[in-house]
Nucleic acid binder design. Structure first.
Lengths: 155, 155
DNA sequence: GTGCTTGCAAACAGTTTGCAGATAG
DNA sequence: CTATCTGCAAACTGTTTGCAAGCAC
């Protein structure tokens, strides 16, 4: 099982970095190792409460911060909306975000690493991260929108 | 003058969209038409206060919202840090962000539009926007960091 | 004159922080 | 046993909103 392996890896790295493997942290690691859908901190919290009803959002954020610093979780920042986290695929890749339902998927596309390498060479910057996102409307939401337009244009 | 032309264009589009050309808005248009350096709302506000000391951040945000909706200003969202705005080059392009001094530049690179087009075809999503960012450390800050390390490693 | 805009201030959301009690190693 | 971690709650930051007075058209 893919996510099981990722969980083991995360747990090992956590310990190797000198952090304690508390039950709460282990639960969070399992959740993000399994999640292919870029959850928010609140969604992770929600899942954790099933097993640890006393867990707080604050703890979730603290653990996510550790993992970010270890380079094992990717944080997608937004200003008005909750940030999203990706611990399943911590290396840089393209995200495709539906503006309507906020679903985020990882479309398959050729490697994007060469962009960073090229820019590093021409600018002298040392590249430490990247974020490539496409915003759009997913097929389902396009249908919904079309029906909505049909209805509202009748009035 | 390049930024002068951009200002004229923005002003014309503002009026065409039915908005009033208040002195505050005109001042903001001039500022973002001239700015090549992706200012924050607060930085724009700061500049505006030189000519309109009573202007508030709220008004800056309201005007920026208009321009975003008109598709004439690009907003770069961050969660802990102020958003940055680009009204000089409203079409999608690559941003290179220094993690240390927060400077944002536009490195020259081949067109990135084909990525969106390709993903649209394979996923069925209707693409409405994109955001390609590289995070790094600029040459000046690399020097600073090196000197800092030299100093701190002595203790 | 009318209704969009401004300025002010309060509200808001997500995230971060401080601290006392709990617990992993 | 002790330093780290949790849970709680308050603080914080950037952004948004509501409303009365002001001003563009």
């Amino acid at each position: 099982m893919e996510s099981q392996a990722r969980f083991q890896e995360l747990q090992a790295k956590l310990k190797k970095s000198g952090y304690r493997a508390t039950p709460q942290r282990v639960a969070l690691l399992k959740i993000i190792a399994a999640s292919t859908g870029h959850p928010s901190a609140a969604q992770i919290h929600e899942q954790m409460r099933r097993h640890f009803p006393t867990t707080t959002l604050g703890t979730v954020y603290k653990t996510l911060t550790l993992l970010k610093e270890m380079g094992e979780v990717l944080e997608l920042e937004f200003s008005n909306v909750e940030n999203r986290y990706d611990g399943n695929k911590p290396y840089p890749h393209l995200h495709l975000i539906c503006m309507k339902c906020r679903r985020i998927i990882d479309p398959e596309i050729g490697p994007l690493g060469h962009v960073g390498a090229q820019v590093a060479k021409t600018t002298g910057y040392q590249i430490v991260g990247q974020r490539f996102e496409l915003y759009g409307v997913c097929p389902q939401c396009q249908t919904t929108l079309r029906e909505h337009l049909k209805v509202t244009s009748r009035k």
